Amino acid sequence: MDTLVSVKNVTKTFPVGKTLLGKPDKFVHAVNNVSFDIYKGETFSVVGESGCGKSTTGRLINHLLMPDSGEIWFDGQRIDQMTQAQVRPLRKEMQMIFQDPAGSLNPRMRVEDLVEEPLLIHTKMTKAERMKEVHKLLEIVGLSAKHAQRFPHEFSGGQKQRIGIARALTVKPKLIIADEPISALDVSIQAQVLNLLHDLQKSFDLTYMFISHDLSVVEMISDRIAVMYLGFIVEMAPKEMIYNNPSHPYTQALLSAVPIPDPGRKKERIILEGDIPSTVNLPEGCPFATRCKYCKPECLKTKPEAKEIEPGHVVACHLY
């Protein structure tokens, strides 16, 4: 398969403490030595609990943040060392759908102006051509041309997210990074937006990086899944392998928390005990060791290397 995005040993820290001279002396380790590829036309999902570094990873790929070390390649070009001016022509190839649909829409702009804006920046269309494209996109995402004159506050949460999706599609991107795009929506609306994203992927030949904390949502849309914990990728595999054969203890615990829509079926819940390590002072060994029931002495001393336990299934754990 053709690779669209390649992330190689990427690390990102944020300063949180300063010395008397004003120099940073403490750092939050948000993303730690992360590597993965995203193939053209697939949905690659990154899952994990809040604060694990998944949103930061998305922003690094989209060049909203710069990595401390490592390489990020997009469609054959290395982008991690590019300046904002150099990356600007690539902006239309990478679009983002944000978690809070209301927060990503300017409340003072009409919907037609919000959706038109990327066309204004990245194309040489006339005003009439832009408006025609805006009305077409609004209909594609389940709204209508008459909605174009309204302001964002006149719409429901699901409708606002549809406007955000329409705006992301305007410049026909190759990659869409969807950062928790449905977590703020009702369950019934979540299914509608997921179905819409699925249909649009086929129509527009899109590649998705889908960021979520909800494994039941990820199962519906993903081709491959990476599980993150404390800034590390602990397991990565095609969807079927993750759900049928979860191999890392953290993945097993996450899957045990997914509710089953059948009151007659009992499910054994894995309760994680122990403390979550500080992201400022990362543990010397495995980041999950303090909460793992299989913890051995070597887990506390050395970080596990990612190993391929079956074709396409990579796990970072001393059990393998």
Rank of each mutant, 00 (worst) to 15 (best):
K146Q: 13
G164D: 10
S144R: 12
K132C: 00
L169W: 02
K174N: 12
L137S: 14
L143M: 15
E139H: 08
S156Y: 07
P173V: 13
L169S: 13
A148E: 04
K136S: 12
K146S: 12
V187A: 14
M131T: 05
V134M: 03
H147S: 14
R150P: 00
R167G: 03
R167K: 03
P181S: 14
P181Q: 14
A168G: 11
T170H: 07
R167H: 03
H153C: 06
K146F: 06
T170I: 01
K174C: 11
V141A: 00
A184G: 10
A178C: 15
H135E: 14
F151V: 10
A145H: 13
A168Y: 04
A166K: 08
K160C: 10
L169E: 06
A148S: 15
R162N: 08
D186V: 00
A178R: 10
H147C: 11
S144V: 04
K146E: 15
D179Q: 09
P181D: 13
G164V: 05
S183C: 05
R162S: 11
E180P: 10
E154R: 06
I177C: 03
V171P: 03
P181C: 15
S183L: 08
I163D: 05
K136N: 12
L143S: 07
A166C: 02
I177L: 11
G157Y: 01
L185G: 13
G157V: 02
Q161V: 06
Q149N: 14
D179P: 12
L175D: 08
Q161H: 09
E180S: 13
P152A: 08
K172A: 10
L185H: 11
V171G: 06
A166V: 05
G158R: 09
G157P: 03
I182H: 06
L138K: 01
L138A: 07
P152H: 11
V187H: 09
K174Q: 15
T170L: 09
K146L: 00
K146C: 01
S156L: 12
I140M: 08
A166L: 04
Q149H: 14
A148P: 04
H147M: 10
F151E: 07
Q161Y: 14
E139F: 01
H135S: 04
I140D: 09
K172C: 04
H147F: 09
I165H: 14
D179E: 11
Q149E: 13
L175H: 02
V171R: 05
G164W: 01
A145F: 08
L175F: 10
A166R: 04
K160F: 08
M131R: 15
D186A: 06
L169M: 04
L185R: 11
G157A: 01
K160L: 12
M131H: 14
S156Q: 13
E154Q: 15
L138P: 03
V187D: 10
L143I: 01
L137E: 04
G164I: 02
